[in-house]
Design a protein around this nucleic acid. Structure first.
Lengths: 239, 239
DNA sequence: GTGACTTTGTGCATTCGTTCACAAGGAAGG
DNA sequence: CCTTCCTTGTGAACGAATGCACAAAGTCAC
């Protein structure tokens, strides 16, 4: 039933509608893609689920299940064709086109993001650097000129910016986010340590450096506690 | 039953053993803590689960369940005491002490991390900046002197470094990770776009900027596809 | 061709996480 | 002291994600 419809779309063109890929799977696809890119560079033509899974540190069953949501691109008894699988994942993720992004906030983090060279090779192009501070506007960073934040609406329209990276101070971030949304951008990657309010239909992901460290700290402490427990239990027996 | 035992431990001392807090909950605790800190700054003394939940963008039921893993710190009919809850979360996360971290790799990202001022207020102190490139060693960044990566074992020992942040180029990251582990550090926050192999017992979290953007791109594309479907379906009817 | 061998794809069971809905507990006012 | 009101804390239902185990489907050697 759905199968036939799907095939039709497939034959007709590009926009192959895949049924709801689970979120957990989506978040792993970029890692698989990264590993496959490495294999391509090494000239490896074929890979088994076991090998690929160990490269990214997941179980082979999980990997196979993840890939099965995209379709059946493996060959039983052999494995996956590296090039083809890489292409299919790119397709699923929507990376056969380039995504234009803008970085807002040219502090230390904004500069680092601007200079980050992991974007270009992975379907993402930095198309604008924005700040509202006059002393930064007009300066060159990583080959781009910093432009006034107030120009975002025009810039977003002209260059087709689809995603904004916010590397602004916490206190002004909500305001910036509002302006970004008003400029018609519907996807935000927020690096500020604050959670922002956006209208429905706008996507936000947060990356908070301190949060990550705190999660590590928690587990470290758990472990310390665990090894202290033997001694602790003993101590409690004594009055 | 458990209550009594728990109380005993509480009375005796500090190391209150909390039963397995779920991972999903742990990853949200830092956000609750952040919101509570904001409330403290604003002089708010008490908060309901509804209010706090909306601040961090989760449902109030989820918030209450999360907090219930730490214990019963709310007052029915009233809400939570902001100071006390903040303290309890800090305690649970192990943030009543300061965690010494080292940053390895003084490229753009490493510098940005070194200058990041969100750490100090959240129980994390940057105690060492390391690089192996002679031209960077000895320079000052954010008030610290960059030291040779080769000195890590001594530095880690002397300063009690518990966590390492890796901001190194992808190709040298595995090697660096090996050295970090050899220096006795058992928690790593990896910013390099590569997955690293570590011995059991060593904790790794990955933060990959391009991955985050790709996940956003996926959802953007899904949405574009969705709205194109009406037109697409129509187009398919025509020959 | 045919049989032995390898590795995928997936149904099923299980574990983990979220949501619902309400009883329990406490405050506040008369 | 008693009643009313509000919000927590949590069992129970649900849903998502993971892990297991094996049939299905292919390759390759002969």
């Amino acid at each position: 039933m759905v199968g036939r419809e799907w095939k039709a779309v497939w034959v007709v063109g590009n926009a192959t509608e895949r049924r709801d890929i689970p979120d957990a799977t989506v978040s792993r696809l970029p890692e698989y893609l990264r590993a496959l890119t490495t294999l391509i560079e090494q000239g490896v033509a074929s890979v088994s689920s076991e090998e690929l899974a160990s490269m990214v540190g997941v179980s082979s069953a999980k990997l196979r299940k993840d890939l099965s949501y995209l379709g059946s691109y493996g060959v039983r008894g052999v494995g996956y064709d590296v090039d083809h699988l890489s292409y299919q994942i790119s397709l699923a993720l929507g990376l056969t086109r380039t995504w234009a992004i803008a970085i807002v906030g040219m502090g230390n983090l904004g500069r680092a993001l601007a200079a980050y060279n992991g974007f270009a090779s992975r379907g993402v192009e930095v198309m604008a650097l924005l700040d509202h501070h006059p002393s930064v506007i007009g300066t060159q960073i990583a080959g781009l000129t910093v432009e006034p934040f107030a120009d975002l609406p025009r810039i977003a329209r002209e260059r087709g910016i689809a995603i904004a990276l916010l590397a602004t101070p916490a206190r002004s971030t909500q305001e910036v986010a509002d302006a970004v949304v008003a400029a018609g951008i519907t996807a935000i990657l927020n690096f500020a340590p604050i959670s922002i309010d956006v209208p429905g239909g706008v996507q936000v992901r947060n990356v908070d450096l301190a949060t990550e460290v705190q999660i590590l700290a928690f587990h470290q402490q758990q472990r310390a506690r665990g090894s202290a427990d033997a001694a602790g239990a003993l101590a409690e027996v004594l009055p």
